[in-house]
C-alpha cells in the first residue's frame, strides 16, 4: 500500500465482506491502468463504481473475475480476495471462479440459439442433472431476471429476436442459471432505453437480497438510485469510496465533489 493512498477517504464498510483487493495494480504492457486499489466490497449489497471514461472502472471490474486474463499484454499485481481466498493463485480454477463471479456486459450478446438454450448454456457446461431439473433451472433463472412472463410461451424462439432490454435481462438470467454469488455488471444499461433501464434497476434491487452486486456505471443518477456503496475512480486510482449517500451528498475529496456535481466527466 503506497503512502498516498492511506490518507484517501476510503471507508471500510461494515458487515460481511465479499471481495477485497489488496494493492491491486493492472498493467496493459507498459501502461498502468490501475494503481494500488485497496477496497472492500460488502456482501449482498450493491456497490457502484463511477468515474469518467477511461478511468479504469471497467478494468477493475474485469480483475474481479479475471477477464483480463484474455488480454495478451495485461498483467496484474497485488491480490484479490473472494471470501477471504485469493483468486490469483497459480492453481486457481478460472472457470470455477467465473461460475461464482458472474458478469453482465455492456451490450447484451445472446448466443445465436434459442432462449432456452441460452439460459441452459451455463448449467449444461457445469453438468447439471437431468432434463427436468434443467427446465426448472431455466424457469427459475428467467423468473429471477424478470423475463419469464414475457418469454414463457416462446422458449424455443431465437434469443436474437428479443428486444434490447429483454436481451439484457436474458444475459442476467444466463448468469443466474450458473448459480453465482457475485454479479459484476459493466454498464448494463448503457445500450438500453429508459423503460428497459428502469426494469433492470428494479431487478437489481430484487437480486441484492441474494447476490453481491458490483456495477460500473456512467450514470450518476443510476449509481445514487441503486447502490449502497460507491467508489469514484479517476485515472486508474480509487479516489474515494464510501456509502453512496456520503459520496453524493458530502464528498470528502474535491475531485469527487466536482465529478458528482457534474463539473467534469
Amino acid at each position: 500500500m503506497s503512502e498516498s493512498n492511506t490518507d484517501r477517504p476510503i471507508e471500510q464498510p461494515e458487515g460481511e465482506i465479499k471481495i477485497e483487493t489488496r494493492g491491486l495494480n493492472l498493467f496493459y504492457d507498459a501502461f498502468r491502468a490501475l494503481t494500488d486499489i485497496n477496497v472492500a466490497i460488502p456482501a449482498r449489497q450493491i456497490t457502484a463504481l463511477i468515474g469518467p471514461s477511461g478511468c479504469g472502472k471497467s478494468s477493475f471490474l474485469r480483475c474481479l473475475n479475471r477477464m483480463n486474463d484474455l488480454i495478451d499484454d495485461a498483467r496484474v499485481e497485488g491480490d484479490v480476495l473472494l471470501d477471504g481466498g485469493s483468486i490469483y493463485e497459480d492453481d486457481t480454477d478460472v472457470a470455477q471462479l467465473r461460475k461464482r463471479v458472474g458478469m453482465v456486459f455492456q451490450t447484451p450478446n445472446p448466443f445465436p440459439m434459442s432462449i432456452y438454450d441460452n439460459v441452459a448454456y451455463g448449467p449444461r457446461l457445469h453438468g447439471f442433472g437431468g432434463r427436468d431439473s434443467l427446465g426448472e433451472v431455466v424457469e427459475k433463472s428467467l423468473r429471477g431476471a424478470a423475463l419469464w412472463d414475457e418469454v414463457k410461451d416462446n422458449l424455443r424462439k431465437s434469443a436474437l429476436d428479443l428486444s434490447g432490454g429483454q436481451q439484457q435481462r436474458l444475459s442476467i438470467a444466463r448468469v443466474l442459471a450458473v448459480g453465482p454469488d457475485v454479479l459484476l455488471m459493466d454498464e448494463p444499461c448503457s445500450a438500453l432505453d429508459p423503460t428497459a433501464t428502469f426494469r433492470i434497476e428494479e431487478l437489481m434491487l430484487e437480486l441484492m437480497e441474494r447476490y453481491t452486486i458490483v456495477i460500473v456505471t456512467h450514470n450518476m443518477y443510476q449509481a445514487s438510485r441503486v447502490s449502497q456503496h460507491t467508489g469514484f475512480f479517476l485515472l486508474g486510482e480509487l479516489i474515494e469510496y464510501g456509502s453512496t449517500v456520503g459520496i453524493f451528498e458530502n464528498p470528502k475529496d474535491q475531485r469527487t465533489d466536482d465529478y458528482v456535481r457534474g463539473r467534469f466527466g
Binding site: 473475475n65 477477464m67 484474455l70 472457470a95 470455477q96 471462479l97 467465473r98 461460475k99 458472474g102 458478469m103 456486459f105 451490450t107 450478446n109 448466443f111 445465436p112 440459439m113 448454456y121 451455463g122 457446461l125 457445469h126 444475459s171 444466463r174 448468469v175 450458473v178
Partner: peptide, 27 residues
C-alpha cells in the same frame, strides 16, 4: 464470430474448448 460471444461464454465459466465447441463453431 464477434469476440463478445467468446467473452460471454468464458464469463459463464466455460473453458476455451467448451467455448469453441458450443458457441464459436455453431455461430
Amino acid at each position: 464470430v464477434p469476440a463478445a460471444l467468446r467473452e460471454n461464454s468464458l464469463a459463464l465459466g466455460a473453458t476455451q474448448w467448451q467455448t469453441i465447441w458450443r458457441v464459436v463453431l455453431p455461430a
